[in-house]
Amino acid sequence: MNMIEFRNVSKVYEDNTAALRNINLTIKKGEFVFLVGPSGSGKTTFIKLLIKEISVTTGNIFIAGRNICNLKVSRIPQLRRNIGYIFQDFKLLPNKTVFENIAFALEVIGKPGYVIKVQVPQVLKLVGLFSKMNSFPHQLSGGEQQRVSIARAFVNRPPILLADEPTGNIDPVTSDGIMKLLSRINLIGTTVAMATHDRSIVNSMRRRVVELEEGEIIRDQKRGVYGV
């Protein structure tokens, strides 16, 4: 089953810079895909289109068979609840504890308190931060903060997880831990798409690699490496 499908998708920004040109791509359920390419090649645009933070200029995007391009604005929250999103800069709220940061994602979608009390500790165990539940983000290392951000993205068990340079602000050793975590999440059936610059991660993981350059796909390789 196709989880994500891009059909003839182009994105031109208001200042006439083309971020994506005529992209055709399918990602199957349970796949793990790296999006690689230099800065400005369209990786972030690719991810932002999927959560409708921005809209396509032409073409169509299907998620689980549904065209999201003609989605009403009022249905966007529903779309985003099915997609976990991990940011390079974590985007944790500094004045909330680890627990609250994750609980927040559940409160926002209307989950009742007793569900939150069960699910948040569960996901914190998964990312190995159960003991830091009551810490504030500034008391954690970069790697730990990114794990909180992953926990927040995954706590609702979305079928799709998107990551935009999740290891961009983290040292290599810690990055390995993050990748192991994403692999585990992928193993239980979650479709993962990750934009990255990190050559060594891509080379060691040996997953599908889609390379973008100036908004076009120049390579789509199963079990690929970063550069040819």
Binding site: I51, P77, L79, R81, Y85, V108, G110
Partner: peptide, 16 residues
């Protein structure tokens, strides 16, 4: 604004 952005990206409705 960051808080609002995160809320929106994890799927909060505008009214929420």
């Amino acid at each position: 604004r960051k808080e609002i952005e995160v809320m929106k990206l994890v799927g909060a409705t505008n009214w929420f």
